[in-house]
Write a protein that binds this DNA or RNA. Structure first.
Length: 498
RNA sequence: GGUCGGAUGGCCGAGUGGCUAGGCACAGCUCUGCAAAAGCUGCUACAGCGGUUCGAAUCCGCUUUCGACCUCCA
């Protein structure tokens, strides 16, 4: 397959050309949400980023199997303390059935994903639906001698593993350092070593979510679900594993350890990690209690929000920054993205309708060359570790050419017909198909279209009579409702709706 | 405390040795009955101090400072 897609591999800490295991096919696994609460702005980043990854993989010719899990059970709250199932704890507080709670937030999550225009993963496995696979994998690890059972719980023997394998390579840490970090570990000294992590936890009597296992009733540890499900659907070794940087340790490091023992080799060829979204310089997250939920974001109901933000504005805002940089939230930044996204999309709409005289030779070869260069760079920038920021920058370079063709500042025959078609095609492919942008304004019903047309007609008549009071009244009142009329140069009137 | 990563113009953000993105904001102009939109023009920054180099935002060192991870976390 001919392509030049390079991605930064967190494991090797360098950009590498992407080569899939099976030619023509690409497997992508991304850590999905824990559905014990509503997703927030921070969660939007990986799902939008990896949506673009899988869109781009498809674009360059791969058949992609995109797997994103739903964590709907079983995580212990804090190591060294009493094991509490997050989902069941919250469920008690809200007096809901765990399943009801999980369902509610799963639905909300899906709704948010659709609003972001993220394509559905091919498979979206749940942790609770794969208990059997997880238990089986744990049994294998025990058989191989790298896990031990204590009092109904099973732990992975990190010390033994680290003696033979590069434990800590992904997250860049040394086991010895880990052992030195002192924490209160009293109470639960079941583990042989502090660095050991749970594969299976015994469920205390009050636990609602529990499953039978060879070690008694309990629930799976956090890390095992991703290993069990990724190997089931993508194979023991697969191409790309994605997720937030905060998951590198311990989650992804543990995944590597588990799978390496269970399957005899490392599970992932390319690790990709997106950086965090911050607010006031701090990571947005549960721990700081500084998160803005997606619903709040879309409705403008969080105290820090000056307004509601369209999901696609958020998408654009995220894609304007490289995925490995931190992205700081601010109203100013979102508002800038809103204007920018609107302007770009309008240029695209114009481009679609633009007519070209069909000349095979460009009248302005310099401009023609420049346009071709900008278009060619779309692919180069994407190939360079998904630099969506630069792709968008080039689109803004092209926007004045497009708008100028409409406004008369650029003669349509300045570029050749071939270049013009390429331009149309490139915007469609990159803006719509790969970046996944759409029109920001809602589709208006035909009836409302007619109402607006009528008002525009009345206003045009008033203008002809030089009755500017009436024409301005119509325009200004509509503007108050968020409908902006524009008198075009050719005498027609267009409008945009906020 | 340990490990790692940042610090770019009014704001957001690309960019790893010379050609110094882009967006938003702001100012002027063109167009226009007036607006809006659009176009053109202007606004030239790289935390500080040293060093390497013909040349550094970009490489090295130190300082200041912010953050991430080390515990659930996208």
């Amino acid at each position: 397959m001919e392509h030049n897609f390079h991605i930064y591999n967190s494991y090797t800490r360098q950009k590498e050309k992407f080569v899939s295991i099976v030619p023509g096919y690409a497997g992508l696994y991304v850590c999905g949400p824990t559905v014990s609460g509503e997703s927030h702005l921070g969660h939007a980043r990986p799902y939008i980023t990896f949506d673009v990854v899988q869109r781009y993989l498809k674009h360059i010719g791969y058949r992609v199997r995109y797997v994103r899990n739903i964590t709907d059970a079983g995580h212990f709250e804090e190591e060294g303390r009493e094991a509490i199932d997050k989902v069941s704890e919250k469920a008690k507080l809200e007096k809901l059935e765990p399943m009801e709670l999980v369902h509610k937030y799963t639905n909300l999550f899906h709704h948010g994903m659709r609003l972001f225009n993220n394509e559905d993963p091919a498979i979206e496995p749940t942790a609770t639906g794969h208990i059997v696979e997880q238990i089986s994998m744990i049994e294998t690890i025990i058989e191989k001698g790298y896990a031990y059972e204590v009092n109904g719980s099973v732990y992975f023997d990190v010390t033994k593993y680290a003696a033979e394998y590069p434990y800590g390579k992904l997250s860049g840490r040394v086991l010895e350092d880990q052992l030195e970090t002192t924490r209160d570990l009293d109470g639960q000294d079941e583990k042989r070593n502090k660095a050991d992590f749970a594969l299976w936890k015994k469920a205390p009597p009050e636990h609602i979510m529990r499953w039978k296992s060879p070690w008694g009733e309990g629930f799976p540890g956090w890390h095992i679900e991703c290993s069990a499900m990724s190997s089931k659907y993508l194979g023991e070794v697969f191409d790309i594993h994605g997720g937030g940087m905060d998951l590198q340790f311990p989650h992804h490091e543990s995944e590597i350890a588990q799978s390496t023992i269970a399957h005899g080799h490392a599970p992932v060829n390319y690790w990709m990690h997106n950086n965090m979204i911050t607010i006031n310089g701090k990571k947005m997250g549960k721990s700081y209690n500084n998160f803005i939920t997606l619903t709040q974001l879309f409705t403008g109901t969080h105290p820090v929000l000056e307004q509601a933000y369209h999901p696609l504005v958020v998408r654009f805002y995220i894609l304007q920054t490289h995925y490995r940089s931190t992205l700081d939230f601010s109203n100013e930044a979102l508002q800038a993205s809103e204007k920018a996204a609107r302007r770009l999309w309008e240029a695209y709409e114009i481009l679609k309708k633009l007519a070209h005289p069909g000349n095979t030779e460009a009248k302005d070869t310099k401009l023609d060359d420049q346009v071709n260069t900008w278009i060619k760079e779309f692919a180069e920038f994407m190939d360079d570790d998904l630099n969506t920021a630069k792709v968008i920058a080039n689109m803004f370079e092209l926007a004045p050419v497009i708008n100028g063709m409409k406004g008369g500042q650029v003669k349509p025959d300045a570029i050749s017909f071939a270049t013009f078609k390429k331009l149309q095609d490139a915007f469609k492919v990159y803006l719509e198909d790969i970046l996944g942008m759409q029109a920001l304004q809602a589709q208006q019903s035909n009836k409302m279209d007619h109402v607006l047309s009528l008002l525009i007609e009345i206003r045009s008549d008033a203008k002809k009579r030089k009755d500017f009071a009436t024409s301005d009244q119509i325009r200004n009142r509509l503007a108050e409702f968020g409908v902006q009329l524009k008198d075009e140069k050719d005498g027609t009137v267009s409008y945009s709706i906020e």
